[in-house]
């Protein structure tokens, strides 16, 4: 492990002001924003962030499986049919079908106890929807960290891409690696909230990873794939390796590691 002394000195360059940041509690976690203002006035950036937060809260209200009155909870109990569900639900349904296919079945919202449960995909999907509002605001770059799942576009001032640390599964203040992204990075594991992952093949709690990280263009899919790799471990990796633009990094329960060609930054 090399310390900061070995990090390359940052080249002097046209470094702009630091990004505008914001932290928003939603979906039982915290969403962190970093928005590069560019030529946009800060008031416009703040307004876009507020709009993005509205999106997150709406997604939370629609898809919370904790809230018994939410549309998804009513659907799970059979009190609402698909045709009675809001348009966002249909979008998520379609994303879930695609993710189940892409993961080789290791991510399967239809195999969860208690009925259809899109939780493993919804947070990433909602984060992307929120990010779209920032893109529409015309800023040159933005990043949202949805409680550990990251969606971004553009780059911070003076850099090519956003640098994202991957938390070490056993040490909250240590990083297992750093990746650079202008799209999506998702990580799944049981070290924060206990054994919540379900093996779709048995319906029982199962985890074959200490930490599973997936990078790629879409955070909705990366989030679902990370869940799938956390459940399936090595067996789930070929599915990710076969997807153009996606890569996985697995830390096994015994601490050993493997990946499908993920690019680590230094």
């Amino acid at each position: 492990m090399t310390g900061p002394a070995s990090l390359p000195a940052q080249p002097p360059g046209p470094a702009g002001p630091p990004p505008v940041t914001h932290a928003e509690p939603a979906m039982g976690t915290v969403f962190s924003f970093a928005v590069v203002t560019g030529a946009a006035p800060e008031s416009a950036v703040r307004a876009a962030i507020a709009g993005a937060c509205d999106v997150l809260h709406r997604c939370d209200a629609l898809f919370s499986t904790w809230d018994e009155a939410s549309p998804v909870s009513r659907f799970r109990r059979g009190e609402a049919t698909v045709s009675q569900m809001p348009p966002e639900f249909h979008e998520v349904l379609e994303e879930c079908r695609a993710a189940r296919r892409a993961s080789g079945g290791w991510f399967d919202p239809w195999a969860m106890p208690g009925g259809f449960d899109p939780t493993g995909l919804v947070k990433g999907w909602a984060t992307e929807r929120a990010l779209a509002l920032l893109r529409d605001a015309g800023v040159p770059g933005a990043l949202i960290n949805g409680g550990g799942d990251v969606a971004a576009f553009g780059s911070p001032a003076g850099a090519q891409r956003w640098r994202v640390g991957i938390r070490h599964p056993w040490r909250a203040d240590a990083l297992a690696g750093i990746v650079e992204t202008d799209a999506a990075v998702a990580t799944s594991g049981c070290y924060e909230r206990g054994a919540h992952l379900i093996d779709p093949r048995t319906g029982q709690p199962a985890s074959r990873a200490a930490s599973a990280t997936v990078t790629g263009p879409s955070l909705a899919l990366a989030d679902a794939l990370a869940t799938g790799v956390a459940v399936g471990g090595d067996e789930a990796l070929p599915a990710v390796a076969g997807l153009a633009g996606y890569a996985a990094y697995l830390i096994r329960p015994d601490g050993t590691e493997t990946d499908t060609g993920i690019e680590f930054a230094r």
Binding site: L7, V164, G165, A174, E192
Partner: peptide
Amino acid sequence: KSEVLRAGSARIYAVTGATYTS
């Protein structure tokens, strides 16, 4: 110490990980 420093000075903008509680 080195890791805290590394995290604080390596120009990291975000940390990905299993979903944390508030």
